[in-house]
Write a protein that binds this DNA or RNA. Structure first.
Length: 439
RNA sequence: GGGGGCGUGGUGUAGUGGCUAACAUGCGGCCCUGUCAAGGCCGAGACCGCGGGUUCGAACCCCGUCGCUCCCGCCA
């Protein structure tokens, strides 16, 4: 017999079906037992009249919560039953895997354990429909990203995560033994994205792991995360990158809202708002003036950068003035940008770069890249880098590389923004941080 | 790396100098003609993170230590 999903039981009234899932609740009375079975699509009540089979009744009585079961029985339309007015009359029951007692974690307790404890027992935590939905939404999110890219002639690449030399700075690299030498885990696909531009791919994207050896203890950092990266050729400035990104995000939001808008409202209490384009754009110098005018005092040593609280303040300003959840902060000073960002014509102290702030959270950095090898080399030296380890990268730009730019976005940070999650650990399947390597 | 907060049965909390350390939930037992956030009764379960100190007396105050957590730095 084929397995029936619980959401489809309404169409099977008076038929005998096989359902499979977890025992969520057992109400064991003198003559009758009610089992609430959960599968990924919902809950259903299974009834067993004990005198029908006393041995089976005894086995059910001793079953632990969260036991994995295969049940067959007849689907009854029963208006008395509060749960969808559907009930299964139990015919057979197979315990596929008995849950041990005591349970380390109760997925359906009224109060949730602390996050750290839930991460210890993540596979139990993920049984909650809340999490089930969260990862369905993430799947849709990535699907929509790919849909839009494919509609715009992008090619997907998978760049290596094992690298032989530090690419950008080196400070936040994990190193490991690689036969007789050292290797590093990639902290960004940046150089390989640009290599694809030199290779003539013109438009590429990659969704893949990124590693950062930052001992950051915040609600928005991880040592391993999924980076969403893209790069496009033949652009005139970072404006082209922003224009693409906002259209892309608008499409992604539209698709997620289509498929999950109601569920997101119900489970996360979030009214998903598809952003209008263009997103507001504010040059950094102007942003700092805005902060001053609102009485926000920036720390003295920011070198033209804005601290996280300042970003939240800017987001509040944008919300008030433009009623928008997103804002591009543009034209960042060179002091706080990497060497490969192209400089702004007319002001060599600024770069053709931007950050995207969503609901006050930094989710993206993007830029036009410097593709002229002499300028790029000079900028690297100015930043104190030595040419030798990045020579292979500089060589990308010797044999006809078009002007190009792109951005990187943190997938889980976008999930935080989308669902208004308080902590990135809630937004990722398995969290990796400075002090967490298990499970 | 810097700063703040927290650490009590399996879990979530209450208790801030003198209690056999409380409540909820979960767990075990008994009861209940259909429950549905099931209900009722009984029971087991914590030497209050760890070490030291102050005090007649410490879960409670002090010091250290470990763990967790948030903020900053840095970033996506």
């Amino acid at each position: 017999m084929n397995r029936t999903y619980i959401k489809d039981l309404r169409t099977k009234v008076d038929q005998t079906v096989k359902i499979q899932g977890w025992l969520q609740t057992l109400r064991d009375q003198k003559k009758i037992q009610f089992l609430i079975l959960r599968d990924p699509t919902g809950l259903v009540q299974v009834a067993h009249w004990k005198p029908n089979d006393e041995d089976l009744a005894a086995r059910i009585t001793s079953m632990g919560m969260e036991t994995a079961l295969t049940i067959t029985g007849k689907v009854i339309d029963n208006p008395v039953v509060k749960l969808n007015q559907i009930e299964i009359q139990l015919e057979s029951l197979v315990v596929e895997n008995a849950a041990e007692i005591p349970l380390p974690f109760e997925p359906f307790a009224e109060t949730l354990p602390a996050l750290d404890y839930r991460l210890d027992w993540r596979y139990m935590d993920l049984r909650r429909p809340y999490n089930n939905l969260l990862f369905q939404i993430e799947t849709t999110l990535e699907m929509a990203m790919r849909e839009y890219w494919l509609q715009h002639n992008f090619v997907e690449i998978h760049s290596p995560k094992l690298t032989g030399s530090p690419s950008e700075s080196g400070a936040e690299l994990f190193s490991l033994d690689y036969f007789e030498r050292k290797a590093y885990l990639a902290q960004s696909p940046q150089f390989y994205k640009q290599m694809a531009m030199a290779a003539g791919f013109e438009r590429i994207f990659e969704i893949g792991p990124v590693f950062r050896a930052d001992p950051s203890f915040t609600a928005r950092h991880m040592t391993e995360f999924t980076g969403v990266d893209m790069e496009i050729s033949w652009i005139d400035s970072h404006e082209d990158v922003m224009a693409f990104q906002e259209g892309w995000l608008q499409y992604v939001y539209t698709r997620v809202k289509e498929l999950h808008g109601d569920a997101i409202k119900e489970t996360f209490d979030v009214d998903l708002v598809v952003p209008t384009v263009p997103f507001p754009r504010i040059p950094m110098r102007e942003a700092i003036e805005i902060l001053k005018s609102r009485g926000y005092v920036l720390p003295a040593d920011k070198k033209g950068d804005i601290d996280p609280a300042g970003e939240r303040e800017i987001a509040a300003y944008v919300k008030e003035k433009f009623d928008h959840d997103f804002v591009f902060l543009t034209d960042w000073p060179i002091a706080v940008r990497p060497f490969y960002h192209m400089r702004l014509e007319g002001d060599e102290t600024l770069t053709r770069s931007y950050d995207l702030i969503a609901n006050g959270l930094e989710i993206t950095t993007g830029a036009q890249r410097e593709h002229r090898v002499d300028v790029l080399t000079r900028q690297a030296l100015e930043k104190g880098l030595t040419v030798e380890p990045i020579q292979y990268y500089l060589d990308f730009f010797r044999y006809g590389c078009p002007p190009h730019g792109g951005f990187g976005l943190g997938l889980s940070r976008l999930m935080m923004v989308l669902l208004n999650l308080p902590n990135i650990r809630e937004a990722v399947y398995i969290f990796r941080g400075p002090t967490r390597l298990n499970p």
